[in-house]
Design a protein around this nucleic acid. Structure first.
Lengths: 168, 168
DNA sequence: AAAGCGAATGTATAAATATGCATTCACAAA
DNA sequence: TTTGTGAATGCATATTTATACATTCGCTTT
């Protein structure tokens, strides 16, 4: 219904996003047009418009730089959070995000919440979910063959409202 | 000859710079024009041009924000410097091997090291890695769709020197 | 005081960046 | 297979941001 993959395209996009991070991590890039050219050299032909969207998606910031005027920087991966920690009130709280890769899904939770949340999921035993394995702050969900990503999200949403917004 | 102060003006400017930091620290500002207005409320009447210069002087970055599209952020006072962001460099030891199967990877570690190593990987949160789950001496890594094995190795190698040699 | 300097800033505009709209494409549902 | 839907993206343009240039102002040196 609302899939978000286009095997070929997605693959290219994912690679491009990685390339973008590599480039701006290894050298100072001061404008998007400049990066468009660098990407073209790498084999990625896109317009500035798409790049602008990519950078927004990657949360890449434009920061003043003494040497080049301005440069783009990849978020620190760790902090970068908005304020401290945004608490929310869901019947099942503690879920930070959920992402898919094939028929596998990785759900990130707040530290120590993984097992509890996984238990909740198991207890509901949705048909779409074959099984789960939980660590400390990560849960691996294996979905049944023929089940789409949206199916999984929908199934979980039944008892985990707000999950849709956690999708990356 | 080489003065750089203009008592009155300078004072006003200094105060304004402080005000700018206070404002963007306390709320999400998504454009300079918006900030110009906010500053005017505070009693500072300047144009967008001057603000652009002030922000550059303060090294204020424009970063994508899920809620407002974009927002301005004051540098972390500490890091954020140009290169000097290089910190921690404790060789991550304990890895015995790493093998792939599709977009999954199994990393074998010395007994009891899995969780610690997985934590390190998680803390760096490389884009290529969707998530990890650790047991006692084994870590399961789920890579993002469209990401190649070498992409994963390269991403991990950034903070796990010598990993390439562990590949089977 | 007059001249000289350089910082600060506004004006106007260039440059850079974001986005509405339309199109294409792959996947899911029927 | 056919149809529907959302993701991805280019194009054109709106919006935003940076800067060249000119002016003002206060301090410093004759």
């Amino acid at each position: 219904m609302h899939s978000q993959k286009k095997k070929n395209q997605m693959k290219i996009k994912a690679q491009r996003l990685i390339a973008i991070k590599q480039i701006i991590s290894s050298r100072k890039v001061s404008s998007q047009e400049e990066l468009v050219v660098l990407l073209e050299v790498e084999g990625y032909k896109i317009t500035q418009a798409t790049l602008s969207r990519d950078l927004k998606y990657l949360k890449v910031a434009k920061v003043p730089d003494a040497e080049t005027g301005y440069k783009y920087v990849v978020p620190d991966t760790a902090q970068n959070q908005d304020e401290p920690i945004k608490q929310e009130e869901f019947p099942v709280s503690g879920v930070e995000s959920i992402e898919f890769s094939g028929h596998l899904a990785i759900m990130k939770t707040r530290p120590g919440f993984a097992n509890g949340i996984a238990s909740v999921i198991d207890s509901h035993g949705p048909y779409e979910i074959l099984g789960t394995i939980a660590g400390d702050d990560t849960i691996l969900l294996i979905s049944r063959e023929g089940v789409s990503k949206s199916d999984v999200i929908n199934a979980l949403s039944l008892f985990m409202p707000g999950l849709k917004e956690k999708t990356l």
